[in-house]
Simulated scan of single mutants.
Amino acid sequence: MFPNPLLIILGPTASGKTKLAVSLADEFNGEIISADSRQIFKGMDIGTGKDLAEYHINGKQIPYHLINIRSAGDKYNVNLFKEDFYHSFQDINQRNRLPILCGGTGMYIHSVLQNYELTAVPRDESLRAKYEGFSREQLQDTLNSYPKKLREQADSSSSKRLIRAIEIAEYLQYNDVKKKERPIINPIVIGLQSDLTTRRDRILARLDLRLKNGLIEEVESLLANGVSLEILTFYGLEYKFVASYLVGDIDFVSLKERLGIAICQFAKRQMTFFRKMEKDGVQINWLNADDQFSMLKSKAIQLINSKFDNEK
């Protein structure tokens, strides 16, 4: 095997990433590193789709990392993820096992592939408050007022990311960001995609199952244990909408309908980010998530073996 290999399995929510990653870990003596911004939190199991039972295969447990490493209510960001990722990555490699990064948080995955130092730029709450009510056009104009070298890697796809780009540009005017030495990763990226109708049906069916299996009770427990409504809203999707239901802002019918729409929209945004990664030079080998699993796995194995053979 070539030095510092990394298998990446990415795709939108409900595309079957974990099942494929676990099966490939079994095939290639691998361990899984989660690239999910919410699975790091303890007690957030149903809403984040941890599906820990899936890590048991052929009578053995596939090791996983970066799941249940923080308490619900804590803050986490892409820079903390990078530190945790490289710690796990080097540990797995040193034991001659294959690291498999699996998840749908594109920003986390992209930060590893590009080793983007600017994730270390700290938050500036006063700056964020200043620009909170600005339109995207106003934010873009503000960003454009900075020297080009301070905004070369800016993501202008949303107001939130424009504010972050301004935050970075402002910081870089007066500070340097030290580059950390990282191992040079040899990645192969496999993406799972499906047609829109199938993806929507899968998302809504999974939402039904989660509501029946205790999603509402999970959010109730988080509130009872001191996780604030504000934080649950920040965590978004399932936690935001169920919390709204529990405090009486929406009824159950609205919860189910609005949450289903929001998750489908989220999946679309995930795919948009993955396409942006491709424009930035990341080669994603797309497979059809709707194929029979045996065929899907076989295609993935062929891609991995081809990568390994070419790098020998």
Rank of each mutant, 00 (worst) to 15 (best):
N4V: 03
I8P: 00
I9N: 09
L10C: 15
G11I: 04
P12H: 10
S15A: 15
K17Q: 06
L20H: 07
A25L: 06
E27L: 01
F28L: 09
N29T: 01
G30L: 10
G30P: 08
S34M: 02
S34C: 10
S34H: 12
R38G: 07
Q39K: 04
Q39S: 03
Q39E: 09
F41V: 13
G47D: 07
T48I: 06
G49H: 12
K50V: 10
D51V: 02
A53V: 08
Y55A: 04
H56V: 06
I57A: 02
K60G: 01
I62F: 05
I62L: 08
I62Q: 08
H65M: 03
H65N: 08
N68T: 05
R70I: 01
S71V: 00
S71Q: 15
A72P: 09
Y76R: 02
N79L: 01
L80G: 05
E83Q: 14
Q90Y: 01
I92M: 06
N93L: 15
R97Y: 01
R97T: 13
P99L: 00
I100T: 11
G106R: 11
M107P: 00
I109P: 10
N115A: 15
N115W: 04
N115K: 14
N115I: 02
L118S: 09
T119S: 10
T119R: 08
A120G: 05
P122S: 05
R123L: 07
E125Y: 11
K130H: 13
F134P: 00
R136T: 12
R136M: 08
E137V: 04
L139F: 03
L139N: 12
D141K: 15
Y146K: 08
K149N: 14
Q153S: 14
S156H: 01
S157L: 03
K160T: 08
R161S: 12
R161M: 12
R164H: 08
E167F: 04
E170I: 02
E170A: 11
Y174Q: 10
D176K: 13
K180G: 00
K180I: 00
E181W: 01
E181G: 01
R182F: 09
P183K: 07
I184S: 11
I185W: 11
N186D: 13
N186E: 03
N186V: 00
V189T: 11
V189N: 08
Q193W: 03
T198S: 14
R200C: 05
D201H: 10
A205Y: 06
D208P: 10
D208T: 13
K212M: 07
N213T: 12
L215H: 07
I216Q: 10
E220N: 13
E220Y: 01
E220M: 14
S221F: 00
L222R: 00
G226Y: 02
V227T: 06
V227Q: 09
S228A: 06
S228E: 07
L229H: 01
L232G: 03
Y235Q: 06
E238H: 13
K240Y: 09
F241G: 03
L246E: 01
V247C: 11
D249L: 13
F252C: 03
L255C: 07
R258A: 05
A262N: 06
C264M: 07
Q265S: 11
Q265V: 01
K268H: 05
Q270E: 09
M271S: 08
T272R: 13
T272I: 13
F273K: 14
G281L: 09
Q283H: 12
W286C: 05
W286P: 11
N288C: 09
A289M: 07
L296M: 11
I301F: 02
L303Y: 10
F308Y: 12
E311A: 15
E311M: 15
